[in-house]
């Protein structure tokens, strides 16, 4: 852990992530205003001492909306990636462990999933199921299952040939025990690194879907939705889309920086350098 944070890039990334996580958790207490409260008199106010990041077309406080929007972004991306890690990871591990034609078939299915750009796949799912929080999570999870199946499969292919797996079988352990108790801990670090990197992608996908109006419905504050609303008045009130944009940037960049740091820390080839 200390070694991870010694890298300045990683610590900056961690700082960004922590800032946004804390902001999201504490949103109900630290937001200066209600994110849905309209105040027509103070509409389209530029950033000031009263409204730090300005107000939007209905006079809602942008800072409060960003803080509350962080909750949606984080809930959606954490939930979606958790689902993708569990389902994708299990598919990849079982597929590699069984091997043969089964593995070939499963990986072809995953390749088909992988061939859709994640935004397009998310778009199809949300368009079919309708835009709400759960469907958004399902859509984003679906786009990330195939990559996690791949990342979990590769190390299992080599681990299952190791003698300790054979030893487990010889000791009468079930296949499930060998796979999930003995093999799984050996691939966990690789999967977790991927998870932090894919979190960033999930945040982007969620923002993109909200931007084109397929995210969580207004008036709920979402970063993508805020950018879209602000986009219509970008010349008169640039703060409306710039600040949510910066929030997205910070989170995506922060997650990527942390992911890279984790990868370097868990890669034995890079340790010691």
């Amino acid at each position: 852990m200390k070694a991870i944070l010694r890298n300045p890039t990683t610590s900056i990334g961690a700082l960004f992530c922590i800032l946004i996580f804390v902001g999201a958790i504490l949103a109900p207490w630290i937001s200066p205003y209600d994110p849905l409260d309209q105040n027509i008199i103070d509409r389209l106010q530029p950033p000031s001492a009263e409204y730090w990041l300005g107000t939007d077309i209905y006079g809602r406080d942008v800072l409060s909306r960003i803080l509350w929007g962080a909750r949606i972004s984080l809930v959606v991306s954490v939930a979606a990636i958790t689902v993708a890690v569990v389902i994708g990871g299990a598919i990849g591990m079982v597929s590699a462990y069984i091997g043969g034609r089964f593995d070939l078939f499963v990986m072809q299915v995953m390749d088909v999933l992988l061939s859709f750009p994640s935004l397009i796949l998310g778009l199809i799912v949300v368009a079919l199921l309708g835009p709400d929080l759960i469907n958004l999570i399902v859509a984003i999870a679906l786009t990330a299952i195939a990559p996690f199946a791949r990342i979990a499969r590769a190390p299992v292919l080599s681990l299952k040939e190791r003698a300790f797996v054979e030893a487990g079988r010889a000791l009468g352990f079930s296949h499930a025990r060998v796979l999930f108790v003995h093999i799984m801990p050996n691939i966990l670090s690789e999967v977790l690194v991927m998870a932090s990197l894919w979190m960033a992608t999930a945040v982007r996908t969620e923002a993109s879907l909200s931007f084109i109006g397929l995210g969580v419905k207004p008036p709920t504050a979402t970063w993508g939705g805020m950018m879209r609303d602000g986009f219509e008045a970008i010349l008169d009130a640039p703060w409306l889309s710039v600040f949510p944009g910066i929030a997205i940037l910070m989170l995506v960049l922060g997650l990527n920086m942390v992911g890279d740091g984790l990868r370097d820390a868990t890669d034995p080839k890079l340790s010691g350098s």
């Binding site: 190791r162 003698a163 300790f164 054979e166 030893a167 010889a170 000791l171 009468g172 352990f173 025990r177 003995h182 801990p185 050996n186």
Partner: peptide, 29 residues
């Protein structure tokens, strides 16, 4: 009937302590 392997490096799970490796079969059986 048990087996002892040739390669002592791949025959032990790198993520488990020796204690867990030896205790586990006793529990399973």
């Amino acid at each position: 009937m048990q087996i002892v392997f040739q390669d002592p490096y791949s025959s032990l799970n790198p993520r488990r302590t020796i204690g867990r490796t030896l205790v586990e079969p006793l529990g399973v059986h």
